[in-house]
Design a protein around this nucleic acid. Structure first.
Lengths: 343, 343
DNA sequence: CTGGTTCATGTAAGCGCTTACATGTCACTT
DNA sequence: AAGTGACATGTAAGCGCTTACATGAACCAG
C-alpha cells in the first residue's frame, strides 16, 4: 500500500525522459545513461530506471535523440517499384546490411509518386545518406541532393557527378550469353529491349553487339520495348504477324523473355526449336517454365548490401570512390537457348 | 563584383535555418514560414529566402522539425521478408497510400534480425504508428508497443489485445476452392501446409474441412510443412515414394503448389490427370506454368493501402475499430484443378 | 583526521526547428 | 494629423533528448 502514489493511468502516451526520471527518482541524465548503456550506472539505479521505463511504457523520441546527436541513424533507399523479384531482392539485401549496421531504412518508391523531387527532398531531411536506383527519372534530383551534401550512391545507374556508382557486370556476360546463342548456329538473333532505358540495358546490348562483331556478324538494331510483360506479349504478337524475322531472341530481362516465350508457345511455335529465347535476371519463374529459361543471374542481394555498406562508410567519413564498383554476374544455361534439357 | 562577400565553399554540409536566415537577411521565423508555405510572406522576401536556400544547399533537419511539431510524419511497417510477390505487393500498396498521405515509411524485415524486439523498439522511436504483419514471432513485442501507445494495426494476424486487425478473407474462398476440387470428383484430397503458422492458413484449412463436411466427407489431417519451395519439393518426393496417397492437393500457397506440381511432373505424374494441385495467392508464375495453377487471388495491394490508411486515421485521432476488417478474395480457376485449359 | 582519488550522479547548455505573441509599417479614415 | 487596422516580420520559448562538466560521497593513504 505504500508505493501507490503513482497515478495509475497517466502513463505512456506522453511519457518523456523527465517523467521517467521523476518516477525513478533520478535525473534525466541518468535515465539517458542507462538507456544508452554506454556509461556505467550503479546496478540498483539502473534497475529503478528500467522499472520506471517499463511502468510508464516509455518510448524515447527518436527525433529528440537525432537532434541531440546530430545524425539520423537511418539510410534512405529510392527504388522505382517492387513488382518482380529484382527490386525486392535488392531491398532485402540492403535492409539486411543496414540492420547489421543498426541503421533504419526509409523507403521511397518513385513510381507511386507524383512529385518525385519533393519526395526525395523530404527523404534527405530524415536520413544520413541515400542510395538511389539509377532510373533516368531521378538524375536531376540526385544532383540537387549531392549539392546538399548527403552522401549518395547510385545503384546500376549513370555515374553522376560526384556520386558513387555500384552495379552488376553486364557487358561481359551479355557477350558470353550472346556468344552462346550464336554458338547454337543462330544467325538472326534480335535484341529485345531499349538500350536507352539505362546503362544496364545499354551494356547488355553492347555485349550482344560485341559477340556478333567477334564472329564477323552484323548485329541488328535493338527492338525498343519496355521491360514489361505487356510489351513482351505485344512484341511476340508482332513477331507472329511476320513483322520481324528471327531465330533467337535475347531479351533485356526475364519478364520480357517469359511473356514472349509463352505467347509464342501458345501460338504453336517451338521454343527453342523454331526460335531460341534467353533473358536476364534468373527470376523464380525462369526455373519453372518449360523449356527452362537460359538467363544471367545477378548478385542482387549483394548489390543491395554493398550499397548499404558504402552508405555507412561514407557517413563514417570514408572518402568517396571515384571508380564504379562492379559485381560479377553468372550465366545460367537451361534449355530455352537450344541446349538439351537437364532437369 | 559587389555581392561576392559570401564564402564560396562554406556551404551545404552545415547549413541550418540560421545560416539561411543570415544569408537572406531575414529572421529564422521567416525562413521557416516560406519553407512551410503556410503563412503569407511577401513575395520579394520569399524569393530572397529561396535564393539563399538554393545557394547554401540547405536541407532542413527532419529531426528538428519532428521534435518541434511533435510527430514524425512517418509510418512503420514490419514484414517478415520480401521473397515472393506477396510481401512486395503489400509493401507497394502500403507505400503508395502512405505517399499520398505524405508519410515517410520506415521498413523493418524481421527475418534478417537477430534482435527483433530491439528493432521494433527502435522503430517505435521514429514513427507515429506501426503496421505489423501478423507473424507469430512478433506478438509479444507488439503488445509492448501497444502499452507504449503507438497505434498499431496487425495485417493478417491474430487479433491482439487492442490492436486493429485487417486481413483478406480466407475461410469462404477456401471452402469454395475445396468445393470446386471435390466437384471434380476427387475424394482423396490433402491439405498441404501448417494451420498453426497463422490465422490465414488456419482459416484456409478450416474452409477445406467445411467443404468436406458439407458433402458428408471426411477431411484428412493437414500435412504440416512450411511455405517454402524446398519443403514443397520434399513433400512431393514423399508422395512419390508412396508415403501419402492423394488425388488432389490443396496447398497453403502458390510457392508450395508450384514446387510440388513441378516435382510431380518431372517424375512423370500427370497434373491434373493423376492428381490435381491448387494453390493460394496467384503469383505471376501460376499464370505461366502448364497446366495453369488454379488458385485464389488476394487483394494484396489493397491490404497494404488499407493498413497505411488506417494508421493515418488512428494517428489523426480516430478511434480504433474493434472489428477486424476483411477484404474479399477471388477464386482463379485455371486447369491444374481438372478444368479444361482455357488460355 | 585530512586531502586526494575514484566513481556515480546531477546540472545545464545546447541540437535546429516551429509558432504564439509582440512589434513595426503602411495605408486608410476621420 | 492622429488613430486604426491589416499585414509582414521579428523575438523568444519551447520540443525531448545527449553530454561536457561540476558536484558530492565514499574510500584509502599518510
Amino acid at each position: 500500500m505504500a508505493k501507490q502514489q503513482a497515478s495509475p493511468e497517466a502513463k505512456s502516451a506522453g511519457a518523456t525522459i523527465y517523467s521517467v526520471a521523476d518516477h525513478a527518482g533520478v535525473s534525466i541524465a541518468t535515465v539517458s545513461r542507462v538507456l544508452q548503456g554506454a556509461t556505467v550506472v550503479a546496478e540498483t539505479t539502473r534497475q529503478k530506471v528500467l522499472a520506471a521505463v517499463e511502468e510508464l511504457g516509455y518510448v524515447p523520441l527518436g527525433a529528440a535523440r537525432s537532434l541531440a546527436v546530430r545524425h539520423h541513424e537511418a539510410h534512405g533507399l529510392v527504388l522505382p517499384e517492387l513488382s518482380g523479384p529484382y527490386y525486392a531482392e535488392l531491398l532485402m539485401g540492403f535492409e539486411a546490411r543496414a540492420a547489421e549496421l543498426a541503421q533504419s531504412i526509409v523507403l521511397v518508391l518513385t513510381n507511386s509518386r507524383t512529385d518525385l523531387a519533393a519526395a526525395v527532398r523530404q527523404l534527405a531531411t530524415r536520413v544520413d545518406a541515400i542510395a538511389v536506383f539509377g532510373s533516368p527519372a531521378i538524375s536531376a534530383d540526385v544532383v540537387r541532393l549531392l549539392r546538399a551534401k548527403k552522401p549518395v550512391v547510385v545503384i546500376a545507374g549513370e555515374p553522376h557527378d560526384g556520386a558513387e556508382t555500384i552495379a552488376a557486370e553486364n557487358l561481359g556476360s551479355a557477350r558470353e550469353l550472346a556468344g552462346h546463342v550464336l554458338g547454337h548456329g543462330r544467325r538472326r538473333a534480335l535484341f529485345v529491349g531499349d538500350p536507352d532505358s539505362g546503362p544496364d540495358i545499354r551494356n547488355r546490348y553492347a555485349g550482344y553487339v560485341a559477340a556478333h562483331r567477334e564472329r564477323g556478324l552484323d548485329a541488328a538494331e535493338p527492338v525498343r520495348v519496355s521491360l514489361s510483360e505487356a510489351d513482351g506479349a505485344a512484341f511476340a504478337q508482332r513477331l507472329l504477324d511476320g513483322e520481324y524475322e528471327a531465330d533467337a531472341l535475347m531479351c533485356a530481362n526475364d519478364e520480357l523473355a517469359l511473356s514472349i516465350m509463352t505467347t509464342l508457345q501458345d501460338a504453336g511455335r517451338d521454343v527453342p526449336g523454331d526460335i531460341a529465347v534467353v533473358g536476364w535476371d534468373d527470376v523464380m519463374t525462369s526455373r519453372y517454365v518449360r523449356p527452362g529459361l537460359t538467363t544471367v543471374r545477378q548478385p542482387v542481394q549483394e548489390l543491395g548490401a554493398l550499397a548499404a555498406n558504402r552508405l555507412h562508410e561514407l557517413v563514417s567519413g570514408e572518402p568517396p570512390r571515384s571508380q564504379a564498383q562492379m559485381l560479377p554476374t553468372q550465366l545460367v544455361v537451361r534449355s530455352s537457348c537450344g541446349c538439351p534439357p537437364t532437369h
